[in-house]
């Protein structure tokens, strides 16, 4: 009897009623449909056939400032949009929380920040897209391949310091993943722990 009990106890199958399917490397990317600061709608289907980078942004987060103040993020955007990669920078801050921007302000901030993305900030004030992707921090980075699968989710690089001086010796995970994936090679580190400020849902 004890043995049967043990066998049953060894079973670890337990299924929550509904899985919270966030963006997972190797799986299909969650759908999204959000407007950008100029009112244009963007959805995942629009980017079928393209490499797509998603970046979560909050202008007042020190870690975002680390990468924008140093020009690191803009040059990354420039490099890869130059290779026909599409890039969307998403703001999921709720109204009244840090980093929330009205469309007009967002257009201004895009200019101030020298944003080199494919659209002026995607605005997600209800946090739908952020939750669907499991975006936890700013900056949190995702790469989606032309088939619509997530190939990378995590931090921008391997140094969680807020100090921009560490950027030159940091390993940029996004660049490494894009270079490997676009060359048809497997991505060595497809999932890393994102660092930074929490997304202000």
């Amino acid at each position: 009897m004890n043995i049967l009990k043990q066998g049953l106890l060894a079973s670890v199958l337990s299924l929550p009623a509904l899985a919270f399917a966030v963006a997972t490397p190797g799986e299909a990317a969650p759908e999204f449909s959000e407007v950008d600061a100029k009112g244009k709608m963007h959805s995942l289907a629009d980017y079928k056939g393209d490499w797509l980078v998603l970046e979560w942004f909050n202008k007042d987060c020190p870690y975002v400032r680390k990468h924008y103040g140093s020009g690191n993020m803009q040059s990354l955007q420039e490099t890869y949009t130059g290779k026909d990669v599409k890039w969307l920078t998403v703001i999921s801050s709720a109204e009244g929380k840090q980093g929330y921007l009205q469309p007009v302000e967002a257009q201004n901030q895009a200019k101030i920040h020298n944003l080199n993305a494919s659209a002026p900030f995607l605005l997600d004030p209800d946090g739908d897209m952020g939750r669907a992707y499991g975006a936890k921090t700013t900056p949190h980075m995702f790469i989606i391949n032309p088939e619509g699968e997530v190939v990378y989710a995590g931090a921008i690089d391997d140094n969680s310091s807020a100090n921009p001086d560490v950027i030159p010796e940091s390993k940029n995970y996004v660049a490494a993943a894009l270079d490997a994936a676009m060359a048809g090679k497997p991505v060595e580190e497809a999932s890393t722990q994102a660092y930074g400020c929490s997304v202000k849902y």
Partner: peptide
């Protein structure tokens, strides 16, 4: 993998999920 989750690696195994439960009765 499913068998391993049940703590088994041989057959037969009969798993029964009563309505509304998510833990099987073996």
């Amino acid at each position: 993998e499913a068998l391993a989750e049940l703590g088994r690696n041989s057959v037969p195994v009969y798993a029964w999920y009563a309505p509304g439960t998510d833990t099987p009765k073996l």
